[in-house]
Design a protein around this nucleic acid. Structure first.
Length: 854
RNA sequence: GGGCGCUUAGCUCAGUUGGUUAGAGCGCAGCCUUCACACGGCUGAGGUCGGAGGUUCGAGUCCUCUAGCGCCCA
């Protein structure tokens, strides 16, 4: 076991200042993290990284997650794998639209003409209308500058990203991949167009998918309405949505409810509008709610949709896409009273129509009592501000197993085949897949997004033939059907009878994000690359997007490739603020990564992130970052010390040295196993624990010998210490490299060639120790040294003060261990006389020297 | 209402397949300065692992019930 030491160049006062900038620049110059695409698949570790949503600032949670799996990436790279570590920016869709509106103070008005050389200044707070194309240009402009800011942060925290692989979700490549995948879904019958009731955001004016909805407690009120029976009696019905009375198509009771059995099959008349509606029975009617009778409207909530569909009821829609009651009187309102009531409600928003309806009902005597205020859960778009309405519209859907048991089972099997870290996250996937209640609605009515690559023919009367979509030719992708022309037509055919129209909708952002492996791997554009990286190894992501990003990626991969997109998924936890509250902009408790990076340094911030277990919610704790920074400084100083004692070369012969290396060897084993199980926090903890005992005990014990005091410079014992120190430092720096890449690289550069981040991961074989002697020596001697220190501290002496007599009592093993390190122990403790005595109980007795000589 | 997770020292958290006196850091207390480190070092005090019951030779670690918190889905 020989360790040859090359030239060493250690700064006088090592410091963390400036390391980030220095090494980021050198890594870029030397292409340390560049992806070598010539390597075969089995030598590649491919990561499907989450593209952060491009907005004003990078969320700390994004940095937290990225740092964690960067440590994994660095481990595998040192392990000899070529790591495919791309990064993408999600700059497509509503968040970008919103940001552009707010940043520039503009809104998109598609009716305006394009202004080619418009110079639009940022005037937040305004709402200046601009053309669609000008708006899209602003989207590109702003996201490009946001992305530069994001990249700076990512570089600042030392992510080992292959920057040549960067992609954006609005780029031509992403458009091409999204559109191609959609065309294939369409060709295989997995995508279809359907006109159906749809959850609709009335402000943003777009359809919303199940995955993007959430329930929020919202104030409402029960109104008790008087419906009229044919025999002259009344039926009382509670509703929270009286404004939908004109849309009432039936009233419903539970089939087993004895109170209303006679009513079923009869007809009742609605209040105000005097429309006859049937009384029907359905098990979803809750006898305990209100009077046990509910009105069915088209559509007040999703239960209405179920009743409407299952009972074959007619459609009487009155709410428009703008969330207002329609202007013209519905043709089923025929009486004079009905017309009068409608006139008072037309064009009102649902909220004000609700109040007006209550007034009208009170006046007609058909409102019983006062409305009773309640708070109930109401469905919203997660980015929206008003409750969702249900409107009927034509949308694209993708089959996701909700209506197909075989497909659903296949998706559940995929979830079981995937390795989850932590494992319990799998349950969230299974519940989501098991609870899907409809196919995936992928179309959105928005300005900025990836258009559907289809057109529709018009018949001789100018009607759109939605049943005969014209798909784009794959070779022409990406296309914009608003400006491009379908095969076999010319631009002059647009919007003419016997001509065509382009599909005006864009895809849901998840319809693109679900294809990140295909985008990053250049599916079809670069088949050689794709074959080398797909299926990938790891999908790291946050827990909140299991039902969206993770599920949809599995779905698309299964539809297109019939395989899982990756073998492992690692789910990181939430970031909470110091008070353990979830960080959010509205609470004003968001801490920016830039500020933390500036204050604690990259390695300090990384230490905090890597200390957290996968899947565990974690507080943004500055104290933990300070600890990390302190560790990095300690690495600098301890390394400087170690390197001051190396020189020449030697062989590790001393038992104490061998004992230290044996412990390091088991640290390497544990750390490697932890990384292989995606338990980066355990790897860090083991490495750190070894390092501190290395500094506190081994360095203290060995430094006198390593200096060569009282020996010739080339003494074998000195040579042994120096070789062991040198080897231990090399191994420890490499163990720290995934967590503290800057300080590890800095120290490495003092005495080694090349980057530590391409150096081999420490192997047990480097620490192969011949011989069978007792390797617990360090443990025993460190314990004795601890007793000596305690004695000095208790007596308030300096640790350098002399010990007159040190007596160690114990069995032969204990005494043998102490004897093996006798010289080191005596030197480290300033011991005048060391006595070993056999005895039944281990004991250590310290007699301090004369205090005056201390 | 269903599901998942968490509950370990004052605080923030580790604790792998159940196995010797339950670990770390912060904070706290005391001590030590200049020959690696004051952006420091050493030493110490402090938990019986939310509660109850069970399985076991043995449980923080498995099972049942229960309380509180968080998240997801109804």
């Amino acid at each position: 076991m020989r360790q040859s030491v090359p030239k060493v160049s250690v700064p006088d006062r090592p410091s963390l200042e400036g390391l980030e900038a220095k090494w980021d620049r050198r890594w870029a110059e030397q292409g340390i993290y560049r992806f070598d695409r010539t390597r075969p698949r089995e030598q590649i570790f491919a990561i499907d990284t989450p593209p952060p949503t491009v907005s004003g600032s990078l969320h700390l949670g994004t940095v937290f997650g990225y740092v964690q799996f960067d440590s994994i990436a660095r481990f595998w790279r040192m392990r000899g794998k070529e790591v495919f570590f791309p990064v993408g920016w999600d700059d497509n869709g509503l968040p970008t639209v919103r940001r552009v509106q707010n940043h520039y103070g503009v809104r998109c008005d598609p009716s305006l003409p394009y202004q080619p050389d418009a110079w639009i200044q940022a005037e937040p707070g305004h709402e200046r209308p601009v053309s669609r194309r000008n708006f899209v240009e602003l989207c590109h402009e702003l996201t490009a500058s946001d992305e530069r800011v994001f990249e700076e942060v990512f570089r600042g925290v030392g992510l080992s990203v292959a920057w040549e692989l960067v992609y954006t979700t609005i780029s031509d490549r992403s458009r091409r991949v999204s559109q191609r995948a959609f065309l294939r879904n369409l060709a295989r019958g997995e995508a279809y167009l359907s006109e159906a009731p749809t959850m609709w955001d009335v402000d943003i004016q777009t359809a919303v998918a199940q995955a993007e909805m959430e329930d929020r407690p919202t104030p409402g009120a029960y109104h008790r309405l008087r419906f009229h029976r044919a025999d002259g009696g009344d039926v009382e019905i509670d509703t929270t949505r009286p404004e939908l009375l004109a849309a009432c198509v039936a009233v419903v009771v539970h089939p087993d409810d004895p109170r209303w059995r006679d009513l079923v099959g009869t007809e009742v008349r609605t209040p105000l509008f005097e429309v006859g509606v049937p009384v029907v029975a359905h098990p979803l009617a809750d006898p305990d709610k209100g009077t046990g009778v509910a009105m069915i409207c088209t559509f007040g909530d999703t239960t209405d949709v179920v009743w409407w569909r299952e009972l074959g009821l007619p459609s009487r829609s009155i709410v428009g896409r703008d969330g207002r009651l329609q202007a013209e009187r519905p043709d089923w309102l025929t009486t004079e009273a009905a017309a009068g009531a409608w006139a008072a409600l037309a064009t009102k928003t649902t909220a004000s129509a609700r109040r007006e309806t209550a007034t009208l009902l009170a006046a007609s005597g058909e409102l019983i009592g006062e409305p009773r205020p309640i708070e109930h859960e109401v469905r919203y778009y997660e980015r929206g501000e008003r409750p969702l309405e249900i409107v009927t519209s034509r949308q694209w859907y993708l089959r996701n197993g909700a209506r197909d048991e075989q497909r659903r089972d296949a998706l559940l099997a995929a979830g079981r085949a995937l390795s989850w870290h932590p494992d319990f996250m799998r349950v969230r996937y299974e519940h989501w897949v098991g609870g899907l209640n409809g196919d995936w609605l992928v179309s959105r009515q928005q300005v900025f997004g990836i258009p559907f690559p289809v057109w529709f023919p018009l018949d001789e009367e100018g009607n759109v033939r939605y049943d005969q979509p014209i798909p784009a030719d794959e070779a022409t992708l990406p296309v914009d059907p608003q400006s491009d022309v379908p095969p076999g037509y010319t631009e002059s055919d647009r919007a003419r009878p016997d001509g065509f129209v382009g599909d005006p909708d864009v895809m849901d952002t998840w319809a693109t994000s679900s294809l990140t492996p295909q985008i990053a791997g250049s599916w079809e554009d670069d088949p050689d690359l794709f074959a080398r990286v797909f299926p990938m190894d790891l999908r790291p992501q946050g827990p909140e997007i299991i039902r969206t990003w993770l599920f949809t990626t599995v779905l698309r991969s299964q539809l297109e490739h019939g395989s899982l997109p990756w073998t492992d998924a690692s789910i990181n936890g939430w970031i909470l603020d110091a008070d353990r509250k979830k960080m959010s902009k509205s609470k004003g408790n968001v801490v920016t990564p830039e500020a933390l990076l500036h204050e604690h340094g990259a390695d300090g911030l990384r230490y905090w992130a890597c200390s957290a277990a996968p899947g565990t919610d974690t507080a943004a704790d500055p104290a933990q970052m300070r600890v990390g920074r302190r560790l990095a400084i300690k690495v600098l100083n301890a390394s400087k010390f170690v390197l001051s004692m190396t020189g020449g070369s030697g062989e590790v012969t001393e038992t104490l040295d061998r004992s230290m290396l044996a412990r390091l060897r088991s640290t390497v084993t544990d750390t490697t196993a932890a990384f292989e199980r995606y338990q980066h926090h355990q790897a860090l903890e083991r490495t750190e624990a070894f390092f501190w005992s290395f500094c506190d005990d081994y360095l203290e014990l060995v430094k006198s010998r390593a200096y060569g005091r009282g020996h010739d410079q080339e003494d074998a014992a000195t040579g042994s210490a120096r070789a062991a120190l040198s080897l231990a430092l090399s191994v420890q720096l490499r163990l720290f490299a995934p967590f503290l890449p800057f300080v590890a690289e800095e120290v490495w550069s003092w005495w080694q060639e090349g980057s530590i981040h391409r150096a081999p991961w420490p192997a047990r074989s480097e620490l192969d120790l011949a011989g069978e002697d007792d390797l617990s020596v360090l443990e025993v001697v460190a314990e004795v040294l601890g007793v000596v220190r305690r004695a000095k501290t208790t007596e308030k002496r300096s640790l350098r003060s002399p010990v007159a007599r040190l007596e160690v009592v114990g069995g032969p093993e204990r005494l043998g261990a102490v004897d093996a390190a006798r010289t080191d122990l005596v030197a480290a403790g300033s011991v005048a006389e060391l006595v070993l005595r056999e005895g039944p109980e281990p004991e250590t007795l310290v007699v301090l020297g004369d205090a005056s000589r201390a």
